[in-house]
Design a protein around this nucleic acid. Structure first.
Lengths: 226, 226
DNA sequence: CGGAAGATTGAGCGTAGTCAAACCGAGTGG
DNA sequence: CCACTCGGTTTGACTACGCTCAATCTTCCG
């Protein structure tokens, strides 16, 4: 039932977060460091696009505003991931980035970066790949939103979290979510009540243990099989 | 209820298709031309990424395969739009592109393009912007999939079609869809029956006239207000 | 301790999915 | 020309999943 790229097991998965040598090399160019406290915004929609950011510690969500004032979460970002690439499109940010906890980011001026591109061969390849990877990630998420039921969505979400956390050296089976049920719901196209209930279901099936934001995965395979 | 960027009226809309001076300049570099007949694939998932394609005539859909063999439509492409940019991410295509009708495409080798980037200043800016714009587009579609009901989704779809067609000099109010109900449904995260029924509703509300694939929009504003 | 924000749980409802049948239009061949 | 097929579309009846509204509980923090 799952698109194969949602599963964390496969070696090369397009849904993979953009952590890797690409980002590492880009990170080495990063300069300014800044603290962002919980709830603070890094940038807003329509803000002039100037910087690309990398999460140094903590985590962020990206949101898009709906016309009625509500906001939908479009992605979560954790340590080592980049923010702000959506601004390349037309020089303005298309989303808002908010810290989910007290965080630190480093900053890289896009103008600087394009200069570097001409001197340091390969830099713009890296950047291009990173942006393109974002496309692939959103496409994956479109599949999640467009063809999975609530249980499958939440399972996919947990697997994704697990994969990204373990890629950062944390446990793949036990972790602490930084986001509320409402934010998860918004991200998955569900209500917060449904998220809560679905956590309950997964727990009843002995696939995970959930205590508020603390998650223990009992069976990765089981989750993937959902 | 609509995210403002779903509406076709606003002047600068991030959901805007990537037709514009950027594409135009890129198109001028395009070389080979090829015919693709209806149902034929331009590339498949996991194909080695080598070319970027521009639709010269006809139209295409991009699909992602689910693990169970089904495919979800992730986007539609019409004349002047680019295909294949998802392959930049890791050198392999993440989606499949299929012609919705007998079509023609022109081809641009990505390797060639990156060479050009170093000589012709600005080429890689263009490419970067185009890729980034794809991100913004997918984010918009995530909002559609994550927070709109069937009527709103279909209205957004029709407005999008209308906008893109009128940008190409066709009528904004009367056009012929190239895709089946099933394909629309897959794209919008609905079943084909729901698409059909929802077309009926919109017709009952005198917002559009629908006869199979022939669409006449009675009120763009009405659709946008849905 | 009290208040607030977040999470859980419950009851009832509605939208969209499912399954099934009928319909329509285009193309094919007798 | 009509009969037949086939893919796509429409329509109907029923169902179920997830939403809504509401109450309660938990944890955190002043």
């Amino acid at each position: 039932m799952f698109p194969d790229f949602v599963q964390p097991t496969s070696e090369r998965t397009p849904c993979m977060t953009h952590t890797g040598s690409d980002t590492a090399r880009l990170l080495s160019l990063m300069a300014g460091r800044r603290k962002i406290s919980q709830g603070e915004s890094l940038y807003h929609e329509h803000d002039h696009f100037q910087f690309i950011y990398a999460v140094q510690s903590g985590s962020f969500k990206s949101t898009l505003a709906l016309a009625d004032g509500f906001e939908q979460v479009s992605s979560f970002h954790m340590v080592g991931e980049l923010l702000g690439l959506d601004g390349v499109a037309d020089g303005r940010h298309a989303s808002r980035a908010v810290a989910l906890e007290d965080s630190e980011i480093s900053t890289l001026s896009y103008a600087q970066l394009t200069e570097l591109s001409s001197t340091i061969c390969g830099v713009h390849h890296i950047l291009m790949r990173l942006i393109s990877r974002e496309i692939v990630r959103s496409h994956c998420h479109m599949v999640v939103l467009g063809s999975l039921n609530s249980t499958q969505r939440l399972a996919a979400f947990l697997l994704n979290q697990s994969e990204r956390l373990s890629a950062r050296g944390y446990s793949a089976l036990e972790f602490h979510l930084k986001m509320t049920r409402g934010e998860i719901g918004s991200f998955l196209g569900l209500t917060l009540e449904t998220v809560s209930r679905t956590f309950g279901e997964l727990q009843d099936q002995r696939l995970v243990q959930v205590k508020r934001r603390h998650i223990v995965i009992a069976s990765l395979d089981g989750l993937a099989r959902v």
